[in-house]
Design a protein around this nucleic acid. Sequence first.
DNA 1: TTAATAAAAGACAAAAATATCTTTTATTAT
DNA 2: ATAATAAAAGATATTTTTGTCTTTTATTAA
Lengths: 164, 164
Amino acid sequence: MSFINPAITFVLITFTNNYMAIFSKTCEYAMRAVFYVAQKSHEGQKVGIKEIAEQINSPEAFLAKILQKLSRERLIQSVKGPNGGFYFDAVSLNRPLADIVSAVDGNEIFTGCGLGLTYCSESNPCPLHDEFKKVRNQITHMLNHTTIGKFNLGLIKGKFTLNK
Amino acid sequence: MSFINPAITFVLITFTNNYMAIFSKTCEYAMRAVFYVAQKSHEGQKVGIKEIAEQINSPEAFLAKILQKLSRERLIQSVKGPNGGFYFDAVSLNRPLADIVSAVDGNEIFTGCGLGLTYCSESNPCPLHDEFKKVRNQITHMLNHTTIGKFNLGLIKGKFTLNK
DNA sequence: TTAATAAAAGACAAAAATATCTTTTATTAT
DNA sequence: ATAATAAAAGATATTTTTGTCTTTTATTAA
Ligand code: FES
Ligand code: FES
């Protein structure tokens, strides 16, 4: 017994809107995780992948892959075994968020053309170039001036959320 | 006979960078196409999908789907048959590019949280909120103040490119 | 009124991004 | 040394985005 009446069944969607954010899901998870781990590091603690994933609301195994990549690139520190987990040392806490973004999403966002042309240039610009450059510069500024550890106190005080 | 020597074969890539631009490919093609058609409309001409795809360097059949969607939403005009093609009427030429973007990529880019949280809010912000808001506002401003027909003269004069 | 033209629609295919599951390796406390 | 723990790595699966091919519908010129 089916609850769908075939007489009134019809196709709803032929062309779905793309979901489209500034950053990939991978990058969003990476940034949230990084802020969460930084906060814990500030308190002198290491954190396990399970806790991170729970606290930032991301799929655990997928996040693990992302942090593995960051770990290979020495952007985050980790130790295996009991009492192990992820953490940031003092140097890493001072790294710009831009390092995380470019490790995960590449450099398109910092240098790419807004209309998707193969390269961006001043001398042979696309129509959007002048305005798009401002956007790109602001993103670059934001990511270069935000250090991984910048929000530790705000997070500890509950001023910010990573999970909603 | 193989040209790959198994003794020196190894896996190169375990975690590829995401390609990540501000807009989806779909949206990039849409914007380029729209500027190209607008320019032709300014000169009083309709354009066929084949010419558009060639001139903006996009896959023809894929672009056709995109323009079909814009056409269904009355953002672009079209007529079938001989001497048919795509064009913009005076009203459409004055529409903001934002209409194209939201038709194709949705509204995430205008309202979404930079860290991918389910919603953005002033009272319960993510760490990036204050800075990200500026980025989002600049994108919104750019897309609202750029009309579809804005670059017609610049394109005709060869000041801008849609194909490189 | 017919043939040619060009967009619209439908079905399908490939590639990339996202997500999960299993096995291995390193570390530490007992 | 051994068992327990937790990250790293490997393999695979799902979903979304991007891209193609075929058929249908509308328009127009002859
Ligand atoms: S050429 Fe397109 S943004 Fe610079
Ligand atoms: S809450 Fe994240 S951008 Fe506003």
